[in-house]
């Protein structure tokens, strides 16, 4: 499986407060779940995730721990000048990774774009790797003049 790594989203704090905005939010305390629908806009620090629908799973034993955010429906994950898009994204707070799948693309500020079946964005190192199926990428090389 070809691996294409690209430096993106370096050093993101996954325990920062998370703000949600949506047309409809349903908090289900007993299922430890929050279901959001209708132009969902999730922000954490300078990471921003937009989608049609998202589900947030958390645990509430001693203190609140968000386990996972699953977004679907035209997902856009943006941070700084980098944007990743796909059909489905899963933000795993424990592993600190975002997995984009379904004709995922990753555009970087300098014009590089990466396309592939599946993307894994590692928030700790900021390295994202595409895997699964055809992977194609277009890179702009800075001109040495």
């Amino acid at each position: 499986v070809p691996q294409l790594a690209a430096q993106v989203f370096p050093g993101h704090d996954t325990s920062a407060p998370v703000n949600y905005a949506a047309d409809r939010i349903e908090l289900q305390d007993k299922q430890n779940r929050v279901v959001l629908s209708g132009s969902v806009d999730v922000r954490q620090g300078d990471l921003r995730l937009q989608a049609a629908r998202t589900v947030v799973n958390f645990t509430d034993a001693g203190s609140l721990q968000i386990q996972r955010i699953t977004a679907s429906g035209g997902v856009v994950v943006a941070r700084g000048n980098e944007r990743a898009t796909g059909d489905v994204a899963v933000y795993d707070f424990n592993k600190k990774i975002i997995t984009m799948s379904g004709n995922a693309t990753l555009k970087r500020g300098n014009g590089d774009t990466l396309r592939g079946g599946r993307f894994v964005i590692d928030l700790k190192s900021g390295v994202s790797s595409a895997s699964g199926g055809r992977v194609s990428g277009t890179f702009t090389v800075p001109k040495q003049n």
């Binding site: 996954t14 325990s15 920062a16 407060p17 998370v18 703000n19 949600y20 905005a21 949506a22 047309d23 409809r24 939010i25 349903e26 908090l27 289900q28 305390d29 007993k30 929050v34 959001l36 947030v56 958390f58 509430d60 001693g62 203190s63 609140l64 721990q65 968000i66 707070f93």
Partner: peptide
């Protein structure tokens, strides 16, 4: 114990906040 919010709903969750 479900709360359904409608119409530009906003929610803030702070991980680590004591219940």
């Amino acid at each position: 114990r479900t709360v359904t919010l409608e119409g530009n709903a906003r929610l803030q969750m702070t991980p680590g906040k004591m219940r």
